[in-house]
Design a protein around this nucleic acid. Structure first.
Lengths: 157, 157
DNA sequence: GGTGAAATCTTCCGCTC
DNA sequence: GAGCGGAAGATTTCACC
């Protein structure tokens, strides 16, 4: 994980469809070298995949929300069961299992407020392990394009 | 936005580096047709980009957390200012501006609990517009790979 | 929406440092 | 061990049907 790897990661997080040739040019190594580094990053699990990003609004999902739920009993089985259940629902973007007042935070994308209500009632409230929940509408979201390696020891240098 | 577009989106969300040839084969159209459809999806803003996904742990960011903050005064300027400030910090993964008890939810990735504490004190608590905040450690996260188009009218069919 | 051909890219392998 | 250059095969991409 040197400066070249960092540069590769930075560019590929910004544009995952860069050609190997262009990427090599950007980071200043030969295409063959670049290809090997990218493969090594993938093999080491630093890069986990490449994904097209879509705009939920363009898919008819104009309303996004965070749903905070408390589960009981709070066992490993209940948590992973609920998580697996959520992950398979089309409304769910991602699920966080967290510490604190709430046990899980669910990011959902639905067409409108009615569908959000339906989701909360039929998909969340209907579950026996959910003892309470609340939701927050997302007015705006900004994601950081690039996650940079932290200075210091980590992974295998 | 027909079944072929849906299939294209589904495949590209799963693997953003699929070759156009392979994608065409998967969705059952000729490569040139497929290329044009993908370009149209990009041009219409359905696909906003392609990104390599990285594992925060492999970048030395082994601890992730959600930070919930309340801002005052709650004006457009204060919100967008705080959001812009956060977006540029390397610890920040994404920022949600939300309704409810809290005004913003910040997803952060840091090396350890000490760095989380430092982030909360030096980057969050230090800001004048933040009147209160709390944080939750993320024990586990699962993201849905694929966001599907919703049935019904949306965008331009 | 499909076909074919030129331009470009990927990828392997031997060579060098 | 890491990086480079070239050549074979695959892919992209465009004009045209």
């Amino acid at each position: 994980m040197d400066d070249i790897d960092s540069a590769i990661l930075s560019h590929l997080q910004r544009d995952g469809r860069l050609t190997n040739r262009e990427l090599a040019r950007l980071v200043g190594v030969a295409p063959s070298t670049c290809l090997e580094r990218v493969r090594a990053l993938r093999a080491r699990g630093v890069i986990t995949g490449y994904h097209a990003a879509v705009q939920p609004r363009m898919l008819g999902r104009s309303l996004q929300a965070l749903v905070f739920a408390r589960l009981r009993p709070l066992s490993r089985e209940v948590i992973s069961g609920f998580e697996a259940y959520l992950a398979q629902l089309p409304e769910v973007v991602s699920v966080f299992v967290v510490s604190g007042d709430d046990d899980v935070v669910v990011h959902v994308a639905v067409p409108d407020i009615e569908q959000l209500h339906a989701f909360l009632m039929d998909r969340v409230s209907a579950r026996r392990e959910v003892v309470s929940f609340r939701s927050s509408v997302i007015y705006q979201q900004t994601g950081t394009r690039v996650l940079t390696p932290v200075n210091g020891r980590h992974g295998h240098e």
